[in-house]
Design a protein around this nucleic acid. Sequence first.
RNA 1: GGCGCAUUCGUCUAACGGUUAGGACGCCGCCCUCUCAAGGCGGUAGUACGAGUUCGAUUCUCGUAUGCGCUACCA
Length: 495
Amino acid sequence: MNDIRVRFAPSPTGYFHIGSARTALYNWLYARGRGGKFILRIEDTDEARSTVPSVRSIIKGLKFMGIKWDEGPLIVKNEKGEDEITSVGPCGPYFQAQRRNFYTQAVDTLLSAKRAYRCFCSHEELAAERKSQLESKGRVGYSGKCRDLSHAQISQLMAEGREPVIRFRVEEGRTVSFHDGIRGDISVRSDEIGDFVIMRSGGLPIYNFACVVDDHMMKISDVIRGEDHISNTPKQIMLYEALGWEVPRFTHLTMILDIDGSRLSKRSGARSLLEYADEGFIREAIVNYLALLGWATKDSRNIFSPDELEREFSLSRCGQSAAVFDNDKLLWLNAQHIKNLSGADIRRRASAVIKEAGMDKYPEERLTAAIEMEKEKIKKLTEIPEKIGFLFDSDFEDDADVKSRAADTVRIVAKLAKALESAEPFSGEKIEEKVRAFAKAEDIKTKDIFHPLRWALSGRSKGPSLFHMCAFLGKDEALQRIGGYIGRYGGSGGE
RNA sequence: GGCGCAUUCGUCUAACGGUUAGGACGCCGCCCUCUCAAGGCGGUAGUACGAGUUCGAUUCUCGUAUGCGCUACCA
């Protein structure tokens, strides 16, 4: 046992994207590797943007990746059998919107210690202030106008119905430093930071504040999050100090960029994690790829199972520069992992695409066998119907190159069909033996009969190993397909 | 504008200050082969720029450039 506790704290606004997925994964891998706890917390203090569907997609996405949280939100069935979102764990609730009293308490502490104050400035005043600061090319930040309002002034403004925000009083002239788990020592002068808002006029906390309160109350030992939070860290550290709380360790992960180097956008990388799942990427590949996006072993090894990642992963081996999301490599990894699965496993995972293609009417064993035969060609689960469909349905259209070359082969194929009738049992081995013997007897190159047979059987010039395919179809079906081929291209010449 | 963080093949990355700068994806070629794949072998391509420290910098320091982030009653 130890006291390693990490958390993944997404805000439920929009879909669960790749960057978040990686942050969650790294937190989880770190916890698993160190025997720590992984906590899921939903940062829904932005009432306007937070949505329940988004919470669901986060939960679904984490589950897809095989990430399990020790504490956090849970979807359970209520008495009526409907889904209901609750939380499990000793430090709950795990939704910030349900933790308002904790934030209020902490604000009161800060207020009475004069480390925070009420600010009545309007948006307009603030905007004007910012504008003039920008023009004078200096620091941009709150001027501290309301820092020393008297009780009388405050009462007066309150009486007027003005609702203040709460600002944190930043100490002047000091340097805030911390040791980042990936980047090392980072320090910033407090003078660069203006008194920032910690609570909105409506009484809801601002991220930097809620985050500190929660991380402390949830006993988080390591805060592992995106690089975009580096600049927030000094503010948070000042809050920890003002509240008299122990500061956790911080580690900032690099950003994930789009192929053109910009921030990940819809175009190439930044779709929802779930879209990748729907597109036929499997858990192992996504986890593997995400792990590699910002982390590497000393030997730059590529293929890792989730279990291996749990053992091998370490924050200290994470890189410090942004990574570009590369679909090609993800696709390659997906093919690698699919290849290592059994046909039955692939079939099970592809059940949705199989069903959608209307192929669920075929026996599972047949589907499994077909997939087994073709699995090293499957890059994505969604490719399965096109890869094996013709094995089940003989009503296919011949490929163009088959059409153009078929006519010359009809005579020899018809002759081969007769030879095949006596193949018993109709196994791959037996068929191969028959076909090779046939070629020898006819004094033709094996290729000149192999290819035509393939065309007759499948209507395409690429596909599974010929004899396995033939055996898979079975004698009746194979002969029938050959008959159809002869019918289509036989013309007047016939036999 | 200010501050912060970053910068090795197109991409992901490896390299106690001393390596012909390694691996992987992609691309190209060859081999294997009943096709397509898979696999094997080989090739392509990189230390942003400029100083400094050092016998020696990808590696340490500084500057420049570029990118990204924060500078919100977003997270």
